[in-house]
Structure formats: structure tokens, C-alpha cells
Design a protein around this nucleic acid. Structure first.
Lengths: 152, 152
DNA sequence: CGTGAAAGTACAACCGA
DNA sequence: TCGGTTGTACTTTCACG
């Protein structure tokens, strides 16, 4: 599946640090010409290793300053794709995972404030397969960063 | 807390969708010239509303296919910045939050596989202020997306 | 993978509402 | 202070070696 060498990893690392860096700058950093970098980036996009480029926005500044993690416990056995389908319409859900342990899923939610979070969680609890939720409100964000380019 | 109008939100929305979009393309979408868009983006970067631009990488492809959420319970009262300092050196920690409830912090970890996750959690438990951890392993990622540009 | 040329883009200085 | 226009340097992108 992967012909991913050290050069690709260094290119990815540079793009994670700055997605708007020019191919020429990246090339200078990794020792390649700009077209060579572009060919590798295009290949990585095609393979799905790179999924795209995005802006990092301060949620506070956009009015999404309150977040919470919610354990979702379902009625009986609900397949993952059905959980996904139930959560996808809720705009406050920024991430969701099926998990091992007592809970069936962990849902990461963002809202404007506590009141908005409350109404969003009411909508979450109203989803048909949801039985019980256990929510944990975030007080402060300590860290938020991409994983290292090369594994330890 | 500053003057962010509809134009800024639409520009941010476009950059979240594609951080490498040209100012000319963004301008065509929002009805502004390229330099006008650049001036607004520079201002948003300066204000910290936009924090930067990054590549979206598939963690699987990079060899970080296993993730977990870990509740951290501390010895006594540990200030947030000290928790941050203790977690920051662990490369497997991709995000961390102080939270309300029984736990003191929630830590989001990524590792190459279950064994790597185990060794990373041993290192986490070895951090001086950590008393107890409760870990929840992710089985599948259902959703992972940015919050909407305008609040509901 | 590098080179070079054509088209497109970024950026700063300048002008007008 | 906002946006538009212009000119210059740089980037992207392609065909070719």
C-alpha cells in the first residue's frame, strides 16, 4: 500500500506545519526541486495519505468556546454506521468514535456556551438508539497537536 | 471579540475547506478582490482567529492507527500548566483537556498499535502527578470534522 | 528527477470612496 | 479605514530530456 519514504514524511511534516508553504520552499528544505515536490504531494493526495489542507481556527473566536466529551450508551446492539448516521446531523458533534469498554461511543461536542451545549445534548439524547449519556465538560484545552511524522 | 463580519466568516469557511485555495479564488467566491482577501486573512492571523494552515493526514497511513481516550486522575491538586508540562513530552499525546467530573484530565493518545499504546500509557502513568488512569480504546472513527462556520 | 517556459498568484505601493 | 488597481517577483504547472 505504501511507497512512502523519508522524503515523503519530511514533505508531509512541512505541510502539517504550514499548508500554504510553496513547493519551492518545501523542496529547499528537503532537497528536491519544486516540481518533484508537487508530484509527490499529488501522489500522496491520490493515495489518501494526505486528505487535504485546512485552516486552523480558534474555536473561541468563532463563538464555539465550550466543549465536552460524551459517553453514549445505546439500546442493544447498534451497528457503527447507524451511530454515525444518527450523529452526523448534529452540527455540535465535531468527532465521534466507537469504543471498547462500557460505553458504545465517545462523542466530542463543541458549542457556543453551556446553554447551547445543554440543548445540543438534549438533541443527542433524543436520537432513537441513544439510551444514556455521560458527559464531561472541558475546562481548558492543554494540548492540541498533530501526531509526529515518524512513529517512535 | 472583534469585528468579524459575514465576509470574514465566508473567507474562513473557504480556507477550512481548502487551505491552499488562492486569494483570487476565495475572492471570486465571496465577492472581493485578491488583495482585499489577503488583507483580511493577514488581519485574522494577527488577531489569532486564524492560527495557521495545516495538512490533514490519514493517521493510519502514517502508522498511527490505534487511538485511545484516557481519563487521568492526579495526586491532590495539580495546576493545569503542570499537567500540560507533564504531558507535552509524550509524543503519543495528541490532545489533552482539564475537565469537570471525577477525572482531572482527558488525554487523547495515538499509537502505531496496541503494544505501542501500552508502552505509551506506561510512560503516562509514570508521570509524577498521575495517580490513576482509566483508558478507553477507540474501535473506529465515525466522524472527524471542523465545527460549522456559523453557530446554530 | 531536473530544467525551462507559460500562465497564474502573491505582495507591496498607490489611489479613491 | 475600507476596497480596488497596478507592477514586479514568485509559484504553479506542464512538456521534455
Amino acid at each position: 500500500m505504501l511507497h512512502m519514504d523519508t522524503l515523503d514524511q519530511r514533505i508531509i511534516s512541512r505541510l502539517v506545519a504550514d499548508a500554504r508553504a510553496s513547493f519551492a520552499d518545501i523542496g529547499a528544505a528537503v532537497g528536491l526541486s519544486a516540481p518533484a515536490v508537487k508530484r509527490r504531494v499529488d501522489k500522496l493526495l491520490d493515495l489518501g495519505v494526505l486528505q487535504g489542507f485546512t485552516a486552523v481556527v480558534d474555536p473561541e473566536a468563532l463563538g464555539w468556546g465550550t466543549e465536552a466529551f460524551v459517553e453514549v450508551h445505546c439500546h442493544g446492539n447498534v451497528p457503527a454506521h447507524r451511530i454515525r448516521g444518527g450523529l452526523e446531523p448534529l452540527p455540535e458533534v465535531v468527532a465521534a468514535y466507537t469504543v471498547s469498554g462500557q460505553a458504545d461511543a465517545i462523542v466530542h461536542m463543541r458549542a457556543a456556551d453551556i446553554h447551547h451545549l445543554e440543548t445540543a445534548m438534549e438533541r443527542l439524547r433524543a436520537v432513537d438508539f441513544v439510551n444514556r449519556t455521560v458527559s464531561t465538560v472541558v475546562l481548558s484545552r492543554l494540548l492540541d497537536r498533530p501526531p509526529p511524522a515518524d512513529r517512535a
